Simulated scan of single mutants.
Amino acid sequence: MTLSSFLRLICLAAIWGGSFLFMRIAAPTFGPAYLIEFRVSFAALALLVTALYLKRSLHFRAHARHYFILGLLNTALPFVLFAYAAQTLTVSVLAILNATAAIWGALIAFFWHRTPLSVKSLIGMVLGICGVIILVGWDQTLVSEALIWPVLAGVLAAVSYGVASNYAKNAPQIAAFDNAHGSMWAAVVWLVPLLPFIPMRAVPDSTEISAVIALGVICTGIAYLLYFRLISDVGAASALSVTFLIPLFGIVWGYLVLDEQVGINTLGGMILVLGGTMLVTGFSPATWQTKRAARAR
């Protein structure tokens, strides 16, 4: 991995970790439906401008069914669930729950595609579940039973990502950029029916409006472009390492910007979740280093 690719990886992790910060800032005022509708709309427009610049045609009609499935499972549903959870949960908890997506993806693959689960994968799943229990069960901010629903929403959002990743295995072979572009427009459509039923809570101030714009343009549109560039430069396996950096940045942003406290349970839960994710995905620093050296030859 070159220095430029490494810097892109760090920037991407910082941006995606920041997405939970921006949701935490804007969700209480915008509500989950309007927040995510604005987010995917700004992202779709950013990708449209990029597509026009690159002279890429989307051909939405030809793959409409695929885009709508992907837009629901990989964007609209998990984004709304995380936005709902962001009204209550801290940035660090949101980021760590997001990291369990790979664990759920492996479990879903076992039932859906009959993909065998190795002993390492099973141990990883147990570690991940224990990490979530420690993260939530020992957090003094989550003692109210009413907060079980936000935690469940965060878990279900990660499960939705797991379903989307398994759907993608048998989905039409479409360029990654087109998948992102088409699924964003599909997500815009999916969210429209929710708007009358989940209204905005108040008139947003300039900080909240800026957070929503940053969510759409930077954390979704630009982040996707960085991610695709990473896959192109270093491969999907190395690009996956961003998963393990996002919770760290989520904790840092929450502490620096919102003064969220970082307890021993947060750190312990993060270590177990990320350790479990590494076992499930087969990722390890040693393996990553070997692949990086092989590409350098």
Rank of each mutant, 00 (worst) to 15 (best):
P78M: 06
G282M: 00
I103G: 05
A158S: 15
K291R: 12
E37M: 13
L191R: 06
T90V: 07
V273G: 05
V155Y: 06
R65H: 10
V262Q: 05
L73Y: 02
F20V: 07
N170P: 00
P285E: 01
I36T: 15
F228E: 03
R39K: 09
I148N: 11
R297G: 14
C11F: 11
S19N: 09
L12M: 10
P172W: 02
D178F: 03
T243Q: 01
I96G: 01
I96L: 08
L94R: 00
N98Y: 02
T266A: 12
T266N: 10
V80R: 02
F228K: 00
F79R: 01
V119N: 07
G182P: 11
I15T: 08
R65Q: 11
G18R: 01
L52N: 10
V252R: 00
A153R: 00
P28K: 02
D139T: 03
L52Y: 04
L142G: 04
V151C: 14
G269N: 02
V188L: 12
I148M: 13
I123Q: 07
V273M: 05
K291A: 09
L77V: 13
V155I: 15
V252F: 15
Y34H: 15
C130V: 12
G268V: 05
I96R: 00
L267P: 09
W149V: 14
H59E: 15
L12F: 05
L89I: 08
K120F: 14
S92F: 12
S183H: 05
E260R: 02
W112M: 12
L195S: 11
G162P: 01
K120M: 13
A106T: 05
A223Y: 00
